[in-house]
Design a binder for these strands. Structure first.
Lengths: 192, 192
DNA sequence: CTTCACATGTAAAGCGTTACATGATTTG
DNA sequence: CAAATCATGTAACGCTTTACATGTGAAG
């Protein structure tokens, strides 16, 4: 067990409020999406494991509510779960080394491949531009929904990281497009 | 087979010059280290697979050289290998979604955990500062060793990405440390 | 003669995604 | 009633790291 981050992502979400596996998936592709993501293949087995270890427990069905669905399985964090979460939070994060397939392609670039590489750079620019827009939208939602919440500064800090990252990527795209456009096309003819 | 990037990282390195598995490992923790890394567990089986597919071939031992070691197995890329590499280079890169254990910890932060989180941020700042220094050193080496090489602009572009990324991280560390220091410690006492 | 760097390889385990399989409920 | 969304779960596959196992050659 190297980092077991999935466990703590789930535990953390359940520390905010009780959720189902489906809810966790949704949250991970919404508020967490700019720095984390979990798939069902990870979530459901992990929920079962956490329940076995008594770090979470299945809540009684919220069947009192009119629209409540019988099939939902909602989990809540336990006191032991909160302790485990706090202990994990203190541990130094172990980030995976950065990898980029784009930079890998660039590294092996030459005059023949430059046009293709410029296409890749343009695609990244478009993606990062879209990302920037979605960050701004998410920030507005956070501020609106989390107004007064003590968690708001923490949420915004994670978002800010994404924004700065995205801006850096955009700057790099522009710089690189410029630098590559200035490169000789084939074997340059030496002027007399 | 989703991306099979390892194959092409190896193929790319062998397109620069013939290498052994050990050389590839070294290159990946040197010139490629800021955006790629391969471990032995990936390299040796992949070399065998590429050789089976005739995309690379084992060179005859360079036993003429005095210091040549009998145990080395040096591989060279074939014409088919170069074609495969060029085709891969044209394919749009598929980047893994960004993940950060640090941001995951931050997202679940509160007043009790803030001091710990500030420690994590300070650690990141130290790491990124060191990274910046190593980037500058690598850049000087690239310029010195690759002077006149047509590959130099491509190598520097990959490095530049790392530099901008690192600078963005440093800015975020400073911003975040400042924002978190301004947060109330516990339940703030309201002054009359 | 010991230590370090060179060098090749395998095995095990964990991480993570994708596809599959199934069915309920709501909305148009 | 059809389509979209809600909802749970498993299986297969591939990726990646870590640890292990083994041995050579050079330098201090």
């Amino acid at each position: 067990m190297r980092t077991a981050s999935t466990r703590f992502a789930i535990l953390g979400l359940l520390s905010l409020e009780p959720m189902s596996g489906y809810d966790i998936r949704r949250a991970s592709s919404d508020a967490l999406s700019h720095f984390w993501h979990e798939s069902y293949g990870q979530i459901y087995p992990t929920l079962a494991a956490l329940a076995r270890e008594r770090l979470i427990r299945e809540s009684p069905r919220a069947s009192t509510q009119p629209g409540a669905r019988a099939t939902r399985r909602v989990y809540a964090i336990t006191a032991a779960g909160r302790r485990a979460l706090a202990a994990w939070q203190k541990r130094p994060p172990r980030e995976r080394p950065f990898r980029s397939e784009l930079l890998l392609r660039l590294f092996f670039g030459d005059t023949r491949s430059t046009p293709t590489l410029l296409t890749h750079v343009a695609r990244l620019k478009a993606e990062e531009t879209a990302r920037g827009a979605s960050y701004r939208a998410l920030d507005q939602r956070l501020v609106a929904e989390g107004a007064g919440s003590p968690s708001l500064p923490y949420w915004r800090a994670t978002l800010r990281y994404g924004q700065l990252r995205s801006e850096a990527a955009l700057r790099w795209c522009d710089e690189t497009a410029l630098a590559f456009s200035a490169l000789p096309r084939r074997k340059p003819r030496v002027r007399p």
